[in-house]
Design a protein around this nucleic acid. Sequence first.
DNA 1: TATTGTTATACTCTATAACTATA
DNA 2: TATAGTTATAGAGTATAACAATA
Lengths: 165, 165
Amino acid sequence: MSEPVDLRDFSQSLPMALMRARERVMREFRPLLGEHDLSEQQWRTLRALAASDDRLEVADLASRTFLLGPSMSRILSNLEGRGLVDRAAGADQRRALIGLTVRGHELVAKVAPQSEFRYAQITEGFGAERLAQLYTLLADLAELDDGAGHDRDGAELDAGHGPPP
Amino acid sequence: MSEPVDLRDFSQSLPMALMRARERVMREFRPLLGEHDLSEQQWRTLRALAASDDRLEVADLASRTFLLGPSMSRILSNLEGRGLVDRAAGADQRRALIGLTVRGHELVAKVAPQSEFRYAQITEGFGAERLAQLYTLLADLAELDDGAGHDRDGAELDAGHGPPP
DNA sequence: TATTGTTATACTCTATAACTATA
DNA sequence: TATAGTTATAGAGTATAACAATA
């Protein structure tokens, strides 16, 4: 039916391999997040806030979580509506300073250990050394130099959906 | 502002590391696919068909590309509308047998070498040995045994979006 | 006039369920 | 009655542009 085409097999597709590995990992965490009605992006936002000593501006938060402004806006208004984050005004009235509320801290404190437990299970099943090795390779790959300058500088990373315009 | 929470730093978030690596790789391929108005999913479908000697049923194609039935349905009607794939009827009239058209073959033959070129650039920048090592680790991680049975057996892998119901 | 953030819009994709048609 | 595939629907995300408020 089809002429032989010189293209690596699916198993040797790097994006696919990365996608499958990520899905395997997320399968470990998704039920936990689902229990608390948190999307991955919402959880990333809460984590970034929990990891910071200070309140963070929206743009700063967006770049730390690899989300775009509009997505972050919606996520924050959702989290704010649920009483998990709040806003404080700084000297510059345009800048909103986002922080976790007490409830937000409590939620992170509740989810984090369970998340660590799942993570430990993965580490146990996979091997700590090999996991460390994987981290190194992934970080190096992510920071591979571009030949040219990137088009999608501040773009979000979750998608992998449509092609660029 | 926030009490110290015992949660690994973002740099040690495995899903995030996988996501960033995937995005780096896709940044290499997306412009190429974009030139031909192909989404990643459409390209995966064309690749799967090109890699197969025979026509494939829709369900088979969906499982090979890690897409769900409804997504595959829409992708196929799009690709069919563009004259890249066609359908043949088998003995069982319910089963549609999908194959590449001549145009579909031509498109794959045109895109594939460019795709290989991008891939070669990544290999060069990253190192062939380390890439092979990465493949091994990713495959092992993807096939890590579940403690329990999976919930999301035939689920799509692209998303990483919302939590399950 | 430039910058921060929000809102509006369009599009794509995931996911489940309902439906059609064959078997 | 069961199976293959499509269509319907709901929901969330990405991405860009337009907008408001502040500087």
